[in-house]
């Protein structure tokens, strides 16, 4: 398995892990009554901003750990430089990811129009964001294996 494939698998797993843990923590705080996610939309803003920060910090830590383990296991110190094929694969994967996110966004807005509570759209954004990220990294793995 190439470095890029391993990197994408780590991205999928870390995305799932961070979202699930953060989602569980936020849900617990909501159930305890510390925050109210059904009517207070200002809290949703904070939840999203903190999620972005937590996600960045956690990913940096996970990426450093992955690089150290990979360097020990493969004895390859340097990260392979990105070439034209890597860039093309990334572009196609980003396109697929945007298709998913756009579809999810439209479906969320449609659900809102059909009477779904507003807070559900925020939950839908998190789920769609996670799915689109999985599609992005999954597409990259697919293109690396099957060709582009």
């Amino acid at each position: 398995m190439s470095y890029r494939e391993k990197e994408n698998i780590i991205n999928i797993l870390s995305g799932l892990l961070i979202t699930l843990i953060y989602g569980w923590v936020v849900l617990q705080r909501h159930l305890e009554g510390t925050i109210d996610l059904t009517t207070d939309y200002k809290t949703w803003g904070s939840v999203f901003l903190i999620f972005i920060l937590v996600s960045i910090v956690a990913r940096i830590i996970i990426y450093i750990i992955f690089h150290i383990i990979n360097a020990i296991a493969t004895r390859e110190q340097r990260i392979p430089a990105e070439d034209e094929r890597d860039k093309l694969i990334k572009l196609k994967a980003t396109r697929n990811s945007h298709y998913i996110f756009s579809s999810g966004f439209v479906m969320s807005v449609m659900a809102l129009a059909f009477g779904m509570p507003v807070y559900m759209i925020f939950i839908a954004f998190i789920i769609v964001g996670l799915i689109s990220e999985i599609v992005d990294n999954g597409s990259q793995i697919y293109y690396y294996r099957k060709g582009v």
């Binding site: 190439s2 890029r4 392979p80 430089a81 070439d83 034209e84 094929r85 890597d86 690396y144 099957k146 060709g147 582009v148």
Partner: peptide, 19 residues
Amino acid sequence: VGASRQTIIAIEKGNYSPS
């Protein structure tokens, strides 16, 4: 040529047409 080994493998196998 300034590419990765994976790219050379993909070109040799016919899985990627280079620029």
